[in-house]
Every structure is written in structure tokens, then in C-alpha cells.
Design a protein around this nucleic acid. Structure first.
Lengths: 87, 87
DNA sequence: AAATTAATTAGACATTTGTCTAAATATTTA
DNA sequence: TAAATATTTAGACAAATGTCTAATTAATTT
């Protein structure tokens, strides 16, 4: 849970998730959409990968990133606990 | 959104939310359940308050903290976007 | 095989964060 | 009103975080 919330605690990383919801993208395509260095984006992608919010697949010299909604389910379950009525 | 994810990015603060889901508690009652100084807990409560995840109400010399589930709804809505199918 | 392109790794550095102790504020009790 | 109790504020400090440039690795093209 810790690494998940950590990964989500950054506007750039949340934007990346929203972009990947539209379609899969290479590291370069993602980086092009930000005014930030490639290595910085690479680092953000690494954190998202650690949290399993995204998966990476190498195709030739490119690396394609995809959203992993399984983890989104898990985190929503955590939030749902608070909607359960207590006496 | 920023301050919300920031507030959630700490195990102590998430535990406080879970405690407040059980019942409302004073700052002191919350602090007693952690092996951490009062001022540190007070600081965590402040962050949760800034994110509107909790509300505080003074009663005499005590301050009662309560969970605010309205914000939980909001954040769940953010996560739900990822469950909407894209072509 | 050398040059180009895509991406990551390494290391530096300023900023933010979580914790602490000490001090301050506010309320209640003796 | 002085002492006790509950909580917050202030300030210090180490650790974590986000960013950068330079260097490295891997794959493709000329």
C-alpha cells in the first residue's frame, strides 16, 4: 500500500496514468508530452512500475508502457472500507 | 487533488483515518495509540485537516476529530476514470 | 563497424517531509 | 489565581524526493 500511495503522490505520475488510460505509449512518447528531462520521466515510470500501476514491455529499441487497472481495483477497495457504516 | 494524495502518502495518517472510521477521537486519544510524540501526531492531523479528510471540533479543552467521507467519494471518482473502457 | 536513436543508470543538489524537543496557548480544576 | 491538562506552534535536523546533466546500455540503420 505504501509504495502505491507514494507512486500516486506526484502530479506528473498521475498525468502519466491518465495518458496511458488513453493508449499505450513508449517512454519517449510520454517524455515528449512533458517539459521535463527524459531521465526524470524514466524515473517516474520506474516508480509507477514498482507500484505495479504500469507494466513495461520492450519492443525492439522501444519500451511500451501500459496501465494496470488491477492495482486500481485494489486501491479502490481500500477506500471502500470507509464507506461501510459503523454503528 | 495534490494535497489529498499528499495527505494519504503516510502510513500513520492512513492509520488515523482507519481509527476515525471506528469512532470520533480526541487528539490525545489518537496520539496515545502511537509511539510518537504529541506534536508529530498534531502535525499529521493538520495535514489530514488541510486535505479535508477529517474535521476538528473543539469541546472544552479537547479537540474531537472525525472522518469526512465526502472527500473519499471524490478520490474514488478519480480512480473510477481508469475503469472506463477506451476503444 | 560506426553512427544514430531509445531508454536507463549514476551522481549531484535543492526542496520537501517527518520527526523531535521546547515553548506557547487555551481550558479546567484545586 | 495557581497548577494541571490538552493541544498546537516554532524551530531544528536527518532522511526522502524530484529534478538535472553526464555517462551507459541496447537496438537499429547507414
Amino acid at each position: 500500500m505504501n509504495i502505491l500511495f507514494k507512486a500516486l503522490n506526484d502530479a506528473t505520475r498521475r498525468e502519466i496514468l491518465e495518458m496511458l488510460h488513453e493508449k499505450d505509449l513508449t517512454a519517449g512518447e510520454i517524455a515528449d508530452r512533458f517539459s521535463m528531462s527524459f531521465p526524470s520521466i524514466s524515473h517516474h515510470l520506474d516508480l509507477l512500475k514498482q507500484a505495479k500501476l504500469v507494466t513495461a514491455e520492450k519492443e525492439g529499441q522501444y519500451v511500451y508502457y501500459s496501465l494496470n487497472t488491477t492495482v486500481v481495483d485494489e486501491i479502490m477497495k481500500w477506500f471502500l472500507q470507509f464507506k461501510i457504516k459503523k454503528k
